[in-house]
């Protein structure tokens, strides 16, 4: 019996879809059977980030409205045999998806897969309710910005009311260490203190993430970037391992060394 995890944030543009794609990829790397569900009806892009856009034939609304079987709508990833995607509909309306329909789909997928990752749309209306309906666990993604933390707080409040969902975990995304250092960005401790939920991982702001997702290849697939390592660590924590948080310092350290070096010369 698998586990369904909804990935949500309240605010848009903080990296829910990227996070879903990367955690999914990282879990698949560890040979878990994973299914990703995009619930952002009308604005789907998990398929684009995964590079699977051209393979879509049926989508989640087709499944709910019984135009096809669930298995027919699932798209196998091009890199892993154990990773699947259930894409969102692009032309339907949000109301075509219902919490009951979602529950049924997730329940069916749980029989077959170890992890079902549900990519939640932004906002707290119908789309959010649909996405949360079948979930057992929740991951809240936030960036170190006040507005994003505020919305994450709101979402956590709503998630706490969901009886079937365990207390959510937090991912702080897009941390720019130099800005945190200067006090221009909230630091992770501050965010965790305000939101007072367990921290699942931190991901530094990395150009590679954008580059990779533009190529339809989640960054977690490439082993040698910091963001990739961060996502792989998050996946390991989801599996129950204890992995220390990545230090954000490294690059800064080198930079500081260089500065020191220059300082010595002048």
């Amino acid at each position: 019996m698998g586990e369904a995890i909804v990935i949500t944030s309240g605010k848009g543009g903080v990296g829910k879809t990227t996070t879903t794609a990367n955690i999914g990829t990282a879990l698949a790397l560890m040979e878990k059977k994973v299914c990703l569900i995009d619930t952002d009806i009308g604005l789907r892009n998990l398929d684009v980030v995964m590079g699977l856009e051209n393979r879509i034939i049926y989508d989640i609304v087709d499944v709910i409205q019984k135009r096809c079987k669930l298995k027919q709508a699932l798209i196998k990833d091009k890199r892993f045999d154990c990773l699947y995607l259930l894409p969102a509909a692009q032309t339907s309306d949000k109301s075509d998806l219902t919490p009951e329909g979602m529950e049924a789909i997730v329940a069916e997928l749980k029989q077959e897969y170890d992890y079902i990752l549900i990519d939640c749309p932004a906002g707290i209306e119908q789309g959010y309710k649909n996405a949360v309906a079948g979930a057992d666990k929740a991951i809240v993604v936030t960036t170190p910005e006040k507005s994003s933390v505020r919305d994450a707080d709101r979402i956590i409040g709503l998630l706490e009311k969901e009886e079937k969902v365990e207390p959510p975990h937090l991912i702080v995304n897009r941390i720019r260490n130099h800005m945190v250092k200067n006090g221009d960005m909230l630091d992770v401790d501050e965010i965790v203190q305000i939101l007072s939920i367990e921290l699942l991982g931190i991901v530094a702001d990395d150009d590679e993430v954008i580059k990779a997702s533009n190529h339809g290849e989640p960054v977690a697939f490439h082993p040698n970037t910091k963001a990739s390592l961060a996502y792989r660590n998050i996946a390991r924590r989801i599996l129950g391992e204890t992995v220390p948080l990545l230090s954000l310092e490294e690059e800064k350290g080198m930079f500081a060394k260089m500065k020191k070096f220059l300082g010595m010369r002048s």
Binding site: R150, D151, D153, R154, I156, G157, L158, E160, S196
Partner: peptide, 14 residues
């Protein structure tokens, strides 16, 4: 006159 004890984090929107 009673003191009501509330034990929770009051989050945004609550």
């Amino acid at each position: 006159s009673e003191v009501k004890v509330v034990n929770k984090v009051v989050r945004s929107g609550q």
